[in-house]
Amino acid sequence: MTDHARHLDTHYDAPAERDGQSLAARLQEAFREAGCDPDRLTLDEIAGIDQLHLGGRRASRSLATLGSFASGSRVLDVGCGTGGASRLLAAEFGAEVTGLDITAAFVEVASWLSRATGLDDRTHFLCADASHAPLADGTFDVVWCQHALMNMPDIAAVLAEWHRLLVPGGTVLLHEVVAGDDPSPLRLPVPWARRVETSHLRSRHALEVLLAEGGFAPVAVQDVTEVALAWRRKHSRREGGDVAPTGPALPGPGLIFGEAFAEMGRNLRDNLSADRVRILEGVWRRA
C-alpha cells in the first residue's frame, strides 16, 4: 500500500483505527440495531451512507441528466466510495457500472450493499489507484466522478487513464470540489481531508486546463455552489439537532468518519460560504 492510500484509509475509515472493527461489520451492526436485515436492504434505507458527497442522490441525478447517456452504457465510477452513485445509475438509468476506489473498506462495503439491494448483477467494484487502473483500453462509454479528484495528487495521470479507458467520443461526467476565489487556508477538517496533505484542490480554471490538455472538450459546465451550499446548510442543522428526525435512526456518515463528521460538515458549509471552495458540475467529451 502506498503512503497516499494509507492516508486515505486513515481518513475515510477513522473508527477502524480506534476499535479495530471493519467498516462493513460496524455498518451491518448498525442496521440490525435499526431493525433492518443487513442482507436485504432498500436504496432508501442505505441513503445515509451510500453517497458521500454534497447533494446526495439529488446531485447524482442532476449530473446523470446533464450527461444524458443511453441505457446500457458502460460506466466507470471513479472514487466510487460505498457505491451509491453506481447503484443509482444502474437502478434509475440502466447503466452497467464498474466502481473503482483506492480505499479497500469502501470497496468491501460497496459490494455488500449492492448484494443487499439486489444490484450486484449491474454493479461491480474493485480496489485500485485511479492513476493505474487494471482495466482494458476502450472499456467504457462514460467516466463518472463525484468529489474524488480533490483526493488525487496526480490528476494528469488520472486523466490519461480516463482517456485510455473511454471509447472515442466517450464522456466524462464530473461533480467536483474546486478552490474558490478566497485564498485563505481551508477550515479543517472537511469530509475529504483532516490535514492539508490529503487535500489536492485546484481552481476551476486549472482543472479545465488539465482536462483540455488531457484530450477532453467541454460539453456543458456549470457552477452549482449555491445549490450545494443550501443542501449543506440544511444537513448541518439536522446534524446539530436543530431539525427533529422524521423516521428511525438509520446509519449515517458519522459511522464512517467518526465523531469529527459534524465538525467536517460545519467547516465545509463555512468554506463554501466564504468562497474558499466551489462546486463544479460538468460534462466533457473525449476528443
Rank of each mutant, 00 (worst) to 15 (best):
L250Y: 02
L41Y: 06
G138C: 04
P153N: 04
A217T: 15
A24D: 11
V167D: 04
V178Y: 03
V143K: 10
H235G: 15
P248D: 09
L272K: 09
P183C: 03
L88A: 02
D223T: 01
S199E: 02
F106K: 08
F140M: 12
V221Y: 02
P245E: 00
E208M: 10
G35R: 00
A133I: 12
R194W: 11
L173Q: 04
P185W: 03
A85V: 03
H175E: 11
E176V: 07
V177Y: 14
A262P: 12
S203Q: 02
R204A: 15
E239F: 13
I279L: 05
P253R: 07
P253C: 06
L211Y: 05
V221A: 01
R74D: 00
G170F: 01
V219G: 06
E176L: 05
V243K: 10
A116L: 05
Y12K: 07
P134D: 01
Q28E: 14
A30D: 02
D77C: 00
V221Q: 00
P191K: 09
E259N: 13
E176G: 04
E259R: 15
S60K: 05
R115Y: 10
F140I: 14
R195D: 15
S60H: 06
S22R: 08
G55V: 02
A91D: 07
A95Y: 13
D242L: 10
V143R: 13
V178M: 08
R233H: 15
S114C: 03
T42I: 02
D141W: 08
R58T: 14
C145I: 09
R40P: 05
Q222I: 10
R278L: 07
G247L: 09
E17P: 01
V97C: 03
H4F: 05
A160S: 13
F31A: 00
Q21T: 15
Q21I: 15
Q28V: 12
V196L: 14
T198C: 15
G180M: 08
T98D: 06
V277W: 13
Q51L: 13
L89S: 00
E239W: 12
V283A: 07
G138D: 05
L268D: 11
H124K: 11
A5H: 11
N151M: 15
E45Q: 09
A90W: 07
D77Q: 02
V224C: 04
A230E: 08
R164P: 02
A104E: 12
